[in-house]
Design a protein around this nucleic acid. Structure first.
Lengths: 211, 211
DNA sequence: AAGCTAAACGGACTGCGGTCCGCTTTGTAT
DNA sequence: ATACAAAGCGGACCGCAGTCCGTTTAGCTT
């Protein structure tokens, strides 16, 4: 049985550049200024070093404006990530196997983790900062989508309690943890991915393997 | 081959009540005051609501004193947990099987996770706060001990890259995640433990099962 | 008992994320 | 052109973790 998910694909953030309420011109101008300044600051000093005051100052904008636009520091980081995130989503939902549909669940799960780890290796600091919110946390739209995706794969593979198991697997792929391994512990990207392959492979290994 | 680990068992915190440099009397008095005040505040309002100013005020002590004693908020929480933590350590190192030595690795791992989840259900807020440090994080003595323990079990079970796999499993048992499932998502303790049983069980299932 | 020194003390201060609210700008209705 | 509401703006303000440094005190020495 095929489940159809009504997935809103791109809208990582609720509002696109031109929403129905039609953004006021000064607001649009300020949003551009802020995004440009934020990208510059991240490029120069890294995501962790970016402070909201610094950003407001650089963009010649009041601090209140920054928070009205993005809600929080995490929301800003989310916005900065949205392009990369949308691309990643495309790949595992519509892309070619084994990441996209067409491959067996076990292979798709392995590919998902490998791709996610590579993603974190590239965009990890932003991703980590995007989750560092007192509220939200694991409730951001992308996280929910990953969860549903993995849950579906696990159900396909006949794992009991796929929902909970998906949570477990997402813990392993948490940017905080993955970055800690990559940066602080100095684990090589390849080793991490190989570890995931064995981990996920064992988890979905069918005792009655036959193919 | 049996590996012998020189494990310093109790010292979750570096210094005990009577260290060699012999604590000054006023310092000892203030430490007691602070611990009592901290326990009261946690009992009254929960660990998350405890602020360092509040604690200093309640203990009739300067803020600087609080930080000299515990280093950080996380350090304070660590200290408050040290008794429960030491007890937990005793159980999985010296206690009866299946948690303690004597049972097969797979069973010990399952028991470890179940015990850890129950522990987090009891002391989770403190444990989560104890890890919420900008520095340290996964480097606190207890976490290293758990890691070595799980690593040993995985090696015994013939898992490749036991070190990395142990990191993965500890991600799943992270207080942040477990508490989120228990409190925010409303997952029942029993379901969480059952999920872990299946998860860890699958992971260590030997394809050539014979016993 | 008096003097001395290192340890301990306390609270003002900093930096940061986030909020609030009185003022300004924009787009529209007349 | 003018008036007017609402959306937007900005920066003073708050709470909190953590630091700094001038002052106090415990406990040893003589």
């Amino acid at each position: 049985m095929t489940r159809i998910f009504f997935v809103s694909l791109i809208p990582i953030r609720p509002e696109g550049p031109s929403g129905p309420p039609s953004e006021r011109s000064d607001a649009a101008r300020n949003r551009e200024r802020l995004l440009e300044a934020a990208r510059d600051l991240v490029a120069e000093h890294g995501a962790d070093a970016l402070t909201m005051d610094m950003l407001a100052c650089r963009a010649n904008v009041g601090k209140g404006t920054v928070f009205r636009r993005f809600g929080s520091r995490a929301g800003l980081m989310m916005t900065l990530l949205s392009d990369a995130e949308a691309e990643f989503q495309q790949l595992f939902i519509f892309g070619p196997p084994p990441l996209g549909p067409g491959a067996p669940a076990a292979e798709r799960l392995i590919a998902f983790g490998e791709a996610r780890i590579a993603y974190i290796d590239r965009n990890g600091e932003l991703a980590r900062a995007a989750e560092h919110s007192p509220h939200n946390r694991h409730e951001a739209p992308p996280a929910q989508l990953w969860h549903r995706h993995i849950e579906m794969l696990l159900r396909e593979a006949g794992v009991g309690d796929p929902w909970l198991t998906a949570s477990f697997l997402l813990s392993v792929l948490d940017p905080e943890r993955v970055l800690y391994a990559l940066r602080t512990q100095g684990v090589e990207l390849g080793r991490l991915q190989a570890g995931w392959r064995e981990f996920a492979g064992r988890l979905l290994a069918r005792p009655d393997a036959r193919d």
